[in-house]
Each structure stands twice: as C-alpha cells, then as structure tokens.
C-alpha cells in the first residue's frame, strides 16, 4: 500500500516532497532507498540524479533547495550505496559527517566555558550531531549519523579509525541522553532538574542506532519501546520503533501496525516500505 502511494508522489524532477509540492532531501533519500529495495530502479535512478544535483561544495546536503547550508539530511544520503550515488560523492558525505559535531563539543565553545569557569555537564562528555551547524547535538540527527556510519563500517574497505571513534562517541552521546524512564526524547533529559519524558519515535531511532550495543541500559529501553509499540498510533513512531526493536531482535513476531494507522507523509510511506523489504532480507540500514 505504502509503495503504490510512494511511487505516485515522485515529482517530475525526480525528487519527492513531504506530502506535496517541491522536492526535499529527507523524503527523497528515504524514497530512493525504498525504490532500490523493491527493485524500482528507474524511479531510484531519477531520485539519485536529484540527490546528486543538490550536493553542496562542502560535501553535504541541504534539507531543500531554498536552504544554502548543509545539514542533518547528509546522513540519509550517506546511506545510499556508494556504487549508486558515486563513490566520491558518497565519500564526501561521510567526510562531512565525520567533520560535524554539536557546537557544545567544539574547541572554541569548550575553551570559552573553561575560561568562564563552567565545567562541561556529564551529558556533554561525548560529541553527537546537530540538526544544523552552529547548534547543539540532539538525539535525532545523532541517531541518523550513527546509522550512516554503522553502515559505512560494514562496507568492505570503508572502516576507518575515525569512523569507529565517532560511532563509539555517538553511542555514548545517546546513552548519556537516555531519559530516566529508559527511553529517549529529542535529547533533553531534564529541564531545570525536572526529569523529562521519552517519546516513542526518538526511542526507536536511538535503539536503531545502538544496534549491537551491549550497554546495560539498552535492555531497559527495549521494554520501554515495546510498551510504546503497543500504545502509540503515530506512523512515524511505529516505523522507528519497529526498526529499533528489530535492530536488537526484539520486535514481537508478526507485529504489524494496527488498521487505521495512517502513513501520511512520504518519509512514513518510504520507511514502511523499507521495513517490509528488510523483512525479505533487503535492509539498507544494516546487514542482517
């Protein structure tokens, strides 16, 4: 069902919109991955051409044509196999990710804080990724960057010390940002000392990015994710919860979103399609 609607949503320029209108990088990257997973090679080829046309000189991708700066969607493009995206283009995306951290982890910021007598808070001990440059790191973009680098590490000849280091640091970042309940929200564990609640979608994203982690906290978060899976009705959240639980072999057998769940946006349709394809052994996020 999602695949049919997804194919209808492709714009004439080859990209995909969120719902309708002009093409954006996030829906296009997910849709290209979905088209590749289901063998729709011509649609994927047109989408890839659009993605390549959006690449910026610094090796990253803007979220859409109107924005003149690379940002978080670079991680999604980095998930596209290099043999299809172009090896140099792919390498540029990975390099962009490796060179990007939250502003709070930059040398300049840390020096300023040191000179002001401020010790870094414990949750800033490891760098994550920001949505946009010159802002702090958050759970969403960190999870997406980790998925891209994890996939990169699995590619023969692509694993480097730097990739391994950023993967380890990024996973520490996520564990530092786990809410007291065991899940994740956007990345604010508490507000002025008051503990904050977790969200289903970010809990799923973080779990997907923590695939293979043996951290004790992850076991607790799987129970939180399963509870979210039973309760929530958001298509986006259900997608990420399925991916997150699947990454740890903890998705209940035969689980499917309830009737009436509406996959309204292109990313929701595309990730739903990717999850179906992953069940048949074609997972773009990791090698099962």
């Amino acid at each position: 069902m999602s695949l049919d609607r997804l194919t209808q949503k492709q714009n004439a320029d080859g990209g995909w919109p969120y719902r309708r209108g002009s093409s954006w990088t996030e829906p296009t990257a997910y849709s290209v991955l979905a088209m590749l997973a289901v063998g729709e090679s011509e649609r994927a080829r047109r989408g890839l051409r659009w993605l390549r046309s959006m690449r910026r000189a610094d090796g990253g991708w803007p979220v859409c044509a109107a924005v003149d700066e690379s940002g978080w969607t670079t991680a999604l493009v980095a998930l596209v196999p290099p043999e299809l995206l172009g090896s140099d283009v792919h390498r540029g995306a990975v390099e962009w990710l490796l060179g990007t951290t939250g502003e709070e982890s930059t040398l300049v910021y840390r020096l300023r804080q040191y000179l002001a007598g401020n010790a870094p808070p414990p949750d800033q001990s490891a760098p994550g990724w920001p949505w946009v440059p010159r802002a702090a790191a958050w759970v969403g973009p960190t999870a997406l960057a980790l998925l891209a680098l994890d996939r990169e590490q699995e590619r023969p000849g692509s694993s480097t010390k730097e990739v391994a280091m950023r993967l380890a640091e990024g996973r520490t970042f996520l564990l530092n940002r786990m809410c007291r309940c065991g899940g994740w929200n956007h990345g604010s564990v508490n507000a002025l000392g008051y503990p904050a609640d977790a969200y289903p979608e970010t809990t799923g994203m973080a779990l997907a990015a923590l695939r293979g982690s043996s951290a004790e906290q992850v076991q607790r978060s799987l129970a939180v994710a399963r509870q979210f899976l039973a309760d929530c009705r958001s298509a986006d959240a259900l997608n990420w919860l399925r991916l997150g639980l699947n990454a740890h072999g903890a998705l209940p057998d035969g689980f499917a979103p309830a009737d009436g769940i509406q996959f309204r946006t292109v990313p929701e349709m595309a990730i739903d399609t990717l999850i179906s394809a992953a069940g048949q052994g074609r997972n773009p996020f990791w090698i099962s």
Partner: peptide
C-alpha cells in the same frame, strides 16, 4: 523544524 530541527535549537543559540 524540517529546516532547523527538532528542537529549533538555532534560535536558542
């Protein structure tokens, strides 16, 4: 947020 992220942290900085 599609441009600035969730949260729109640029505004805070």
């Amino acid at each position: 947020s599609g441009i600035y992220g969730w949260p729109k942290n640029v505004l805070h900085w």
